[in-house]
């Protein structure tokens, strides 16, 4: 068997994973952190990365694939520079989440699951984001935005465009 050269998981990432593995009693516990690492660096989990992750973690490629497909935040295809996840669950839905989603679709010209042609924005409906008391809420990449209004959404989209 040929060992994979560091490609999807850089040397630096591998070093970090090795030091993290020392804090867990079993090495396979770094499976989720390893998949996260690939997603941070590549934006999604490219199919050929699966074998490399499996090798680094010490589990089968099937076990990695199982993880990638089970956890909904892991993506198997690339998304835009900014992934907008609108919370669609009850508390947000009571406080205008449907209107927020409509507004984003109108502003971006895409439906949930799609990416704008310039590759800047992807839109998704997410399950409860834990910002229920500050509804409606959405996640833009890693950042939560709460108590959204049309003006606030305009500001956020403008900021994204400027900083892309």
């Amino acid at each position: 068997m040929t060992m994979h050269e560091p490609y999807y998981l850089s040397l630096q990432r591998r070093k970090w994973l090795t030091s993290l593995a020392r804090r867990y009693p079993q090495r396979r516990s770094i499976a989720l952190p390893a998949v996260w690492a690939v997603q941070y660096d590549w934006g999604f989990i490219p199919a050929p990365a699966i074998e490399e992750i499996a090798e680094v973690v010490g589990i089968t490629p099937a076990a990695v694939r199982e993880i990638v497909t089970f956890y909904s935040m892991f993506r198997e295809a690339p998304v835009g520079r900014y992934l907008i996840g609108v919370c669609g669950t009850l508390s947000c839905a009571l406080c205008g989440a449907e209107g927020l989603l409509d507004y984003l679709q109108e502003k971006l010209g895409i439906k949930p699951g799609e990416t704008t042609p310039d590759g800047l924005f992807s839109l998704e409906v997410m399950m409860c984001l834990g910002a229920c008391a500050w509804a409606p809420a959405m996640l833009v990449n890693q950042r939560i935005h709460v108590r959204l209004t049309r003006t606030r959404v305009d500001e956020i989209l403008a900021w994204c465009r400027e900083n892309a």
Binding site: Q26, P33, F70, S72
Partner: peptide, 23 residues
């Protein structure tokens, strides 16, 4: 240990599997 988007992992025994590197 960071989860990755699965409500079920709040269930204690599912959480243990998730920490062990499983679904």
């Amino acid at each position: 240990h960071s989860g990755a988007g699965a409500y079920i992992c709040g269930e204690e025994s599912a959480m243990l599997n998730s920490i062990e590197g499983r679904v």
